[in-house]
């Protein structure tokens, strides 16, 4: 090898060392920032056990993605700085680019490991904390925290353009507002009377499609008192953007008082409702055209 060839190799090694050191430094600084500073603020928050699990998953994903993103950015920044043209009046062609089997090998090993790990991690976490997602009538993922006492079943009845809530354990009363007791396992049975909607209780970590004729089950284990927002997450017609309301997680005694009040308030409507069912197929007369 010529003297100039050795000089190029030494120079190349120095650049690689610089890039790796800069990348390590950036990662050591940014990963803790992501985990401990940005992480707690990631959605959907800590409003329920399921929401907390989803937030933890998002932190892990972001923490793993951070060094990858930093690797690209550091390499780009270093290349722009180190290989800039210092004598712009003399335009020279750069050295020929050759493959580096060692770099290719490790690139494949690292990225494959990352992707496989994420696939495994995602699958395990989905089964562990995926209960907040609608899973159809026979859910695979069940709540990670065993229920204390019996679960509260709340049927979400979507229609253009309002969510109503039916409580089969309380005489089948239906309300246009929702309150849930704290520290309780809630089973949402989500269905629709017309088109496809999506019940998205953001702070609870619950999102389940509301399909006509389908009982889509999602679970949530409430924590302490909380104000949460419900939105439709499926484009469903003219007033889709207005299909929202708020709900509350309240102490159990307050919930008992509220549901008793609702039973009295909506007693006339309850008498006319069809018996509680997991799905409803409106009578032909009620489908107009």
């Amino acid at each position: 090898m010529s003297a100039s060839g050795e000089a190029v190799n030494v120079e190349g090694t120095r650049h690689w060392r610089n890039v790796v050191l800069l990348w390590l430094l950036a990662s050591v600084i940014m990963v803790p920032v992501v985990v401990f500073v940005l992480g707690p603020g990631l959605p959907p928050g800590n409003g329920s056990v399921e929401a907390s699990g989803q937030t933890s998953d998002n932190i892990v994903l972001l923490a793993l993605a951070t060094p990858v993103a930093l690797g690209v950015l550091v390499y780009l920044g270093y290349a722009l700085w180190a290989f800039r043209e210092r004598t712009p009046e003399v335009v020279l062609d750069g050295p020929p680019i050759r493959g580096n089997s060692s770099v290719q090998f490790w690139w494949l090993i690292v990225t494959t490991t990352l992707v496989l790990f994420l696939a495994g991690f995602g699958t395990i976490r989905l089964l562990a904390d995926g209960a907040g997602g609608g899973q159809g009538p026979n859910p695979l993922a069940t709540p990670s925290v065993p229920a204390v006492g019996s679960r509260l079943v709340v049927q979400v009845v979507a229609q253009q353009w309002q969510f109503n809530y039916r409580f089969p354990a309380y005489g089948g009363v239906e309300t246009n507002q929702i309150e849930l007791p704290e520290n309780t396992l809630v089973q949402f049975n989500v269905t629709s009377l017309d088109v496809i909607h999506s019940f998205w209780a953001y702070e609870l970590g619950v999102k389940a499609d509301a399909n006509p004729g389908v009982n889509n089950i999602a679970y949530v284990t409430t924590k302490g008192p909380l104000l949460f927002h419900v939105r439709c997450a499926e484009l469903c017609g003219l007033w889709h953007g207005y299909m929202f309301n708020q709900g509350q997680v309240v102490p159990k005694t307050q919930f008992a008082a509220w549901i008793a009040q609702q039973r009295v308030k909506f007693a006339p409507a309850t008498k006319t409702l069809p018996p509680y069912s997991k799905t409803y197929f409106p009578h032909a007369q009620r489908r107009a055209g």
Binding site: Q160, Q162, V195, L238, R287, A288, G289
Partner: peptide, 24 residues
């Protein structure tokens, strides 16, 4: 605020919720 009807009263439209039910 918006107001709407909840009866599927749009005769001639799918599920009675097209046409006038989807038009301000």
């Amino acid at each position: 605020y918006r107001w709407q009807c909840f009866v599927p009263c749009a005769a001639g439209y799918i599920a009675g919720f097209g046409g006038p039910m989807q038009t301000v």
